[in-house]
Amino acid sequence: MTTAQPIAAPASPEFAPDRPGVPEAARESLIRARGLTKKFAEFVAVDAIDFDVAPGESFGFLGPNGAGKTSTMRMIGCVSPITGGVLSVLGMNPAHDAALIKGRIGVVPQQDTLDMELTVRENLIIYGRYFDLSRREAGRRADDLLEFVQLTDRAKSTVESLSGGMKRRLTIARSLVNEPDLLLLDEPTTGLDPQARHLLWDRLYRLKQQGVTLVLTTHYMDEAEQLCDRLVVMDKAHIVAEGSPRELIDQYSTKEVLELRFPVGVLETLGTELDGLAERIERLPDRVLLYADDGEAAAAAAHARGLRPETVLVRRSSLEDVFLRLTGRSLIE
């Protein structure tokens, strides 16, 4: 599978997971959901889903906008009461132990919710105070975390003056101020440029190496492949598949994909010419995807049939292909 960019230095010791043990009941699953359901009036946002997240693993919800990912994350984060089913987080019930659970999780929301009236460092200190840290300890952690997300030189800046990537990094730093056992990240890199995304991924990878359990939602396949040990694919309030990125690709796609792009108007005229060239054929508005274990061979066969596409591309299957197979739609429309 895709490997994350090499991490040179081991995790800095001050961020070692020096935290009280997880309750015995939760050792098996940090999060356990059975028949978990969320309704808003008549609208069903999450429809009776089951999943488990093990301690130390990095777990992803992959799906398009509106699939129910954020609703699920909000229920786990104890800011949205469940409508039905069973949900246990860190061995506790969000309906009764919200303050206790929230004390041990970190949350990176989809939309930045930094305190616009405070400076960068003050944001971290007051957040630490919300978790009952002493002022001295909150200040110490703020300085360490600013170092970790490379914002030390911006400590006294206002939040407004930060770039989008810096704000996300500050939000991640803020989510770590209570040294959480579980980190919830709702689309952590949406809207960031590639450089900012890689820097964030690097920080998240380090946290994962330190034993922090990561649960994230994304509609980016590369992000899921970079960060997730295991993921579920969500579509229209349901979980439609579950496994590691590799397992999902093996199960729902072929080794390779042949992408043929034809001149405007030609695609519509193609009838049976493509039949039998591949295990499965997807027609997209602008190109045809042929799923085959040997893409080069399929390309040669297409050429032999007299097909003359404008461009020919053979690539490995990705989670995007898995999603297309499962739902008939692209992830990002």
Binding site: A99, K102, P109, T113, E117, Y127, F131
Partner: peptide, 15 residues
């Protein structure tokens, strides 16, 4: 409504 300050606060033990 704008700064979403309370959304952030509700992710902590505060209610």
């Amino acid at each position: 409504r704008y700064a979403k300050t309370y959304d952030a606060i509700l992710s902590t033990p505060l209610g």
